[in-house]
């Protein structure tokens, strides 16, 4: 029922891996809600930088999480705490 430090960390890492795409989706849909001040329309390059910045952020986070997840260990794979 209670895990040691390392398996516990690994479980939380899984939680992070599960949440990451949800956060990503949220931030991808966020531009739909913006309406720029004034009425001259949004700056295209601003959107471009935002989206690519978000993209790089997601990749970096995924790269940070992935090595810890792929490590094989003796404990059973599934899942529930």
């Amino acid at each position: 029922m209670f895990l040691g430090r390392i398996p516990y960390r690994r479980r939380r890492l899984r939680d992070a891996a599960r949440l990451l795409p949800l956060f990503g989706l949220f931030f991808l849909l966020l531009p739909l809600l913006w309406s720029p001040p004034g009425n001259e329309g949004r700056r295209f390059s601003g959107d471009l930088v935002y989206l690519f910045g978000l993209w790089v952020g997601m990749i970096v986070l995924a790269a940070a999480i992935a090595p810890g997840l792929s490590r094989r260990d003796g404990e059973p794979d599934e899942d529930e705490d």
Binding site: R18, L20, P21, G24, L28, M58, I59, A62
Partner: peptide, 13 residues
């Protein structure tokens, strides 16, 4: 590209 990106970073699902 965003669709596959989300699917891949959510590979654990």
């Amino acid at each position: 590209y965003f669709g596959p990106t989300l699917v891949f970073i959510g590979w654990w699902w």
